[in-house]
Design a protein around this nucleic acid. Structure first.
Lengths: 116, 116
DNA sequence: TGCCCCTATCGTCGATCAGCGATGAATGCC
DNA sequence: GGCATTCATCGCTGATCGACGATAGGGGCA
């Protein structure tokens, strides 16, 4: 039972309302630029954290490869990692991905010109 | 005057409603994974096509480098290219970027679980 | 015809990515 | 203490990216 004790993920995921720079946006896009990483993020649709082993079990990839993908997602700011004894709990930083998605929407939004 | 004769860009940009695969999503993300390419797309916020030279003039990068970025954006499906004599008109495929953005929104949307 | 403009492509170089196995550190359990 | 589990990191390899200059081709225009 004590192993199912996720650390209260992502609730303090407060939105940072400053607009994202092109550099920041491209960093996030780089995090998304591999099918395995998209699939990893899909595992977090249920707002539940996962330990790395759970992610590894979902793929036909070596543990070290998954660990590398998790690192890239962390560095892109798309995942949070919390060590808990021998485990690491991961959860998605929804606000970051959402802010990225909204910036992309704005790029497609001609009416954004009204603000210029 | 005849040089300002953009080829009726992107109006036939009909949405393709099939959900995007992880492979497709990561291809699009790869197209977005460089600050110069984000900035290139920003030039298309006004729904107007541009020739490659206009893009080159906006950057401190060699023409061949910009041409390469335009190629990657084309291959990611984010830009359309239309040759017109010596020029190439580029315009943004808004529906593609929007569909990508909406897929990212869904990843952040816990209520998407209701559909499962 | 000849020249210039606009672009795409080629070749090259260094940097980063993507994959793997192996190793090692931290922790919990017996 | 000893061992198994979990995970990150370290090489290593091949592939791709990002930048450039140089080159070449396709049109217009004089």
């Amino acid at each position: 039972m004590s192993d199912t004790h996720p650390p209260m993920c992502g609730m303090a995921d407060h939105p940072e309302p400053e607009p994202l720079s092109e550099e920041r946006l491209s960093e996030i896009a780089k995090g998304l630029a591999h099918p395995a990483r998209i699939r990893i993020l899909e595992q977090f649709i249920e707002c539940q954290p996962h330990i790395a082993q759970e992610i590894v079990d979902e793929f036909d990839l070596a543990q070290s490869t998954i660990s590398e993908h998790l690192r890239l997602l962390r560095e892109a700011g798309l995942l949070n990692a919390t060590r808990d004894g021998p485990r690491t709990w991961y959860c998605m930083r929804r606000a970051v991905l959402r802010q990225f998605a909204e910036a992309m929407i704005e790029l497609t939004d001609t009416s954004a010109l009204a603000d210029v």
